[in-house]
């Protein structure tokens, strides 16, 4: 069998301000993941960094430890790799007051 693989867009054209996060994504079948964030428009202000979060149940979240910068210019892409994450994944960010970013967030998952 080929290894299962999936690209999942979990945020499309969403404007992030303040405390922001993607919808929970369940991927217990996957052993590795890369999350890409593409800025669809130039950021307002400095959006700062995003963090990968894990969860035992899709409702309670804890930082996994991986952080990465959010993109700033339209078309810019940033990403993070994560493995050994259990079942639930999301990324979260606390944008500074006045900052805003329109994102496209894609998980690439592989068994």
């Amino acid at each position: 069998m080929l290894r299962e693989s999936q690209a999942a867009v979990v945020a499309r054209n969403e404007e992030w301000r303040g405390a922001s996060a993607t919808e929970p994504y369940e991927a217990g079948w996957a052993s590795e993941a890369i999350v890409f964030v593409r800025a669809l428009k130039d950021a307002v202000g400095a959006p700062g960094r995003a963090r990968v979060e894990l969860s035992p149940d899709g409702m309670h979240w804890v930082a996994e430890g991986t952080e990465f910068p959010l993109p700033v210019r339209a078309g810019e892409v940033t990403f993070a790799r994560v493995s050994h994450f259990g079942t639930w994944l999301r990324i979260a960010a606390d944008l500074p007051e006045g900052a805003a970013l329109t994102v496209l967030v894609t998980w690439h998952l592989k068994a």
Partner: peptide, 26 residues
């Protein structure tokens, strides 16, 4: 993408799930 109807813009990707529950597991 701003042209997308908001009723569709809210959609996200389906998942493969084991139906994991907080009180007993999958």
């Amino acid at each position: 993408l701003d042209a997308m109807h908001p009723g569709y813009a809210q959609h996200t990707q389906a998942m493969l799930s084991t139906l994991p529950m907080w009180d007993f597991g999958s």
